[in-house]
Amino acid sequence: MIDELIERVEKGEGADRELDGAIHVALFPDSAASRFITGAYRSEWWKFGTPQGLVYRTENGGGLPLPSYTTSLDAVIALIEEKLPGWHADVDFGASLAEDGTLGARLFRPLCNPPGNFTGDAKSPARAALSAFLKAHKEQHDAAR
Score class of each variant (00 low, 15 high):
M1I: 10
M1K: 11
M1N: 10
I2S: 09
D3A: 14
I6C: 09
I6R: 06
R8H: 08
E10M: 06
K11Q: 13
G12E: 05
E13L: 04
A15I: 09
A15Q: 06
R17G: 09
E18P: 04
L19I: 03
G21W: 02
G21R: 13
G21Q: 12
A22V: 09
I23D: 02
A26V: 01
L27H: 03
F28K: 09
P29V: 01
P29M: 02
D30L: 11
D30K: 13
D30S: 13
S31G: 04
S31A: 11
S31F: 01
A33R: 05
S34F: 07
R35K: 11
I37Y: 03
I37A: 11
T38A: 10
A40Y: 13
A40R: 14
Y41C: 08
S43A: 15
E44Q: 14
E44T: 10
W45D: 08
W46L: 15
W46C: 15
K47A: 15
K47V: 15
F48L: 14
F48D: 10
P51A: 06
Q52H: 14
V55M: 14
R57M: 11
T58A: 15
T58I: 04
N60R: 12
G62S: 14
G62W: 08
G62P: 05
G63L: 05
G63Q: 09
L64G: 02
L64N: 07
L64F: 00
L66S: 05
L66Y: 07
P67S: 03
P67N: 03
P67Q: 06
Y69S: 03
T70D: 02
T70E: 01
T71Y: 00
S72P: 00
L73S: 09
L73Y: 08
L73Q: 05
D74N: 07
V76D: 01
I80Y: 05
E82K: 08
K83F: 04
K83Q: 14
K83A: 02
L84Q: 09
P85D: 05
P85K: 10
G86Y: 04
V91F: 00
D92N: 10
F93S: 02
G94A: 11
G94H: 09
A95F: 03
L97P: 00
A98I: 00
D100L: 04
D100T: 01
L103H: 01
L103G: 00
A105T: 00
R106T: 08
R106F: 12
L107H: 02
R109C: 05
R109A: 06
P110I: 10
L111Y: 13
C112K: 15
N113D: 15
P114H: 03
G116H: 08
G116F: 09
G116R: 03
N117S: 13
N117T: 11
F118N: 02
F118K: 02
T119R: 06
A122Y: 00
K123M: 12
K123P: 06
S124Y: 00
S124M: 07
P125R: 04
P125N: 06
L130T: 00
S131T: 00
A132C: 04
A132G: 05
A132W: 07
A132H: 10
F133W: 05
L134V: 03
L134K: 08
L134W: 04
K135H: 10
K135R: 15
A136C: 08
H137R: 08
Q140S: 07
H141F: 11
H141M: 11
A143T: 09
A144F: 01
